[in-house]
């Protein structure tokens, strides 16, 4: 009997020690669960939210942003405009690589400051070649440099997007006006879409974004530029909180050389239609069959 009691005691001690060690090991998780409300946890997919639910979600996001970041923001739900299909063209003969578009995106979309994150990456290419292998993204000299041309790349809002196909929870999908959007509150952060995208267009929030309250752009959209939580994927959304209200996206406005042409493909008088009809446009990696909405041309 003493053998059994001794074993039982040792076992009991071991179990207690194990439980304590487990609790200690899990301790940092407390910070994670603190920020997670039950409402947030149970929130349904954007497409399943009733108008009242969506209102509640938008207000909650505004309250959370105020509480966590000290910034007053307004988050809207901008729906696609009927009769609109967005298209974008970029004049490679005119782009001078100044990165003002990337900078504007950074400010408009409330990106993390420390990484100087942007949805746009500008590639400095060798003239005469479309080979990205010898391109540079971190050039830091006066532009345009001799013998180079510049190619900004952002999400091309593909009509047959690989990222949409691979998402296991349908957190990303193509809307009626052509924009491929992400429900940041539904994304599980598996990054399969990031692996699938042929254009390096998607970004993952590896940490909580750092932005000062006064730098936060308060004019926000649920599917676009509200401050994203860590652990989810994001990408260019053609500034839908602007474009679905008729405005130009931030990158198009910021471009000082006028290389960017944005508009409604269904409007025969739009600049984008004129470009597609009159300029020799091409798309990146056409052979993959992604059918982008973003076109490039030389003048």
């Amino acid at each position: 009997m003493t053998e059994v009691t001794r074993r039982a005691t040792v076992a009991g001690l071991g179990a207690t020690l194990g439980a304590v060690a487990f609790a200690k090991a899990m301790e940092p998780l407390r910070h994670f669960t603190e920020d997670l409300s039950l409402d947030q946890f149970l929130q349904r997919h954007y497409r399943e939210l009733s108008p009242e639910d969506l209102e509640r979600v938008l207000r909650r996001i505004e309250e959370d942003t105020l509480r966590e970041r000290g910034a007053h923001v307004s988050v809207a739900d901008d729906r696609p405009i009927p009769g609109v299909q967005f298209g974008y063209a970029l004049n490679l003969s005119v782009c001078n690589g100044c990165r003002k578009c990337a900078e504007a995106c950074h400010h408009e979309n409330n990106h993390d400051r420390s990484t100087n994150q942007s949805y746009i990456r500008v590639f400095e290419m060798e003239q005469g070649s479309l080979d990205f292998e010898h391109a540079a993204t971190h050039y830091d000299h006066a532009v345009p440099a001799p013998g180079k041309y510049y190619m900004p790349v952002q999400c091309l809002q593909c009509d047959d997007a690989p990222c949409v196909a691979v998402c296991p929870v349908e957190a990303t999908w193509k809307e009626e006006d052509g924009i491929v959007v992400i429900d940041y509150d539904w994304c599980i952060g598996c990054r399969y879409c990031e692996a699938a995208c042929p254009y390096h267009a998607r970004r993952f929030n590896w940490s909580e974004p750092e932005i000062e309250a006064e730098e936060i752009n308060p004019d926000q959209g649920y599917l676009s530029n509200r401050v994203r939580p860590k652990g989810v994927v994001e990408k260019c959304h053609f500034c839908l909180h602007r474009t679905r209200r008729g405005r130009l996206p931030a990158c198009a406005e910021a471009c000082p050389t006028g290389a960017r042409v944005f508009g409604n493909l269904l409007d025969p008088d739009s600049p984008i239609r004129w470009v597609l009809d009159n300029k020799r446009v091409f798309v990146l990696k056409e052979e993959l069959g992604t059918r982008p909405r973003f076109f490039y041309f030389f003048d």
Partner: peptide
């Protein structure tokens, strides 16, 4: 010629 905005 201009100096570009900072890289990522």
């Amino acid at each position: 010629l201009v100096m570009p905005a900072p890289p990522p």
